[in-house]
Amino acid sequence: MHTPLTEPPAAAEAEHLERQRAAITRLGHELRALVEATVRTAASHDTLHRAADGVRHVTGQLTGRRRARAEVPEVDGFPGGPRMYSPVVGAGSPLAPPVHITPTDDGLIGHCTLGFAHEGPPGYGHGGMSAMLLDELMGQACTAAGTPGLTVSLQMRYHQPIPLETPLHILGRVTGTNNRKIFVTGAITTQADPSTNLVTADGVFIAPDPDQVRALFPGMREEA
Rank of each mutant, 00 (worst) to 15 (best):
T47Y: 04
G64A: 07
A131N: 01
P79M: 03
T63G: 11
A131R: 03
G127V: 05
T113F: 07
L62R: 09
A70K: 08
Q140A: 04
M84N: 08
P161T: 13
Q160E: 15
T59D: 10
P103W: 12
M129E: 12
I109Y: 03
Y158P: 08
L62P: 05
I109F: 01
P121W: 15
V39Y: 08
H100Q: 15
P87I: 10
L31I: 04
R157D: 01
E30R: 08
G81L: 11
G77I: 09
H29A: 15
A117H: 11
M84V: 12
R40L: 07
E36P: 06
A52Q: 12
G127L: 02
G123P: 06
G107T: 03
T143Y: 03
T59S: 09
G127E: 02
I101W: 04
G149S: 01
H118P: 05
D106F: 08
L62M: 13
P103V: 10
F78Q: 12
T151C: 02
T113W: 09
L62C: 08
R83Q: 15
D53N: 11
L27P: 03
A145D: 02
P122S: 13
S93A: 06
Q155A: 05
D105E: 15
Q61C: 07
R56W: 03
H159L: 12
P97A: 15
G92D: 03
R32G: 06
Y158Q: 02
V35M: 10
R26A: 10
V99G: 03
T47G: 03
L34H: 06
C112F: 13
Q160Y: 15
A37C: 04
H57W: 14
Q61N: 07
V35S: 09
D135K: 00
T59W: 11
P79N: 03
S86C: 13
G92W: 05
T41D: 06
G54R: 13
S153I: 00
L27E: 02
G139A: 00
Y158M: 05
G107A: 02
F116D: 15
T41R: 07
R67K: 07
E36T: 09
A43R: 09
D106Q: 04
I109V: 14
C142G: 02
P82A: 14
D76A: 07
T38S: 14
L150Q: 01
A117M: 14
L114K: 12
H57F: 14
S153N: 02
G54Y: 03
D76L: 07
I109L: 10
A68E: 10
G127H: 04
T102R: 12
V55M: 08
I109M: 11
G123L: 08
S86F: 09
M84P: 09
S130G: 10
P73D: 10
R66T: 11
T143H: 06
M138T: 02
H100A: 14
H111L: 13
A131L: 04
A33R: 14
E36H: 09
A51N: 07
L27Y: 03
L134D: 01
P73A: 10
G64H: 05
D46N: 08
T47M: 05
V39M: 10
T104M: 07
G107N: 02
S153G: 01
R67C: 02
D76V: 08
Q155Y: 01
G92M: 10
L34S: 10
M129G: 08
T143Q: 04
G110S: 09
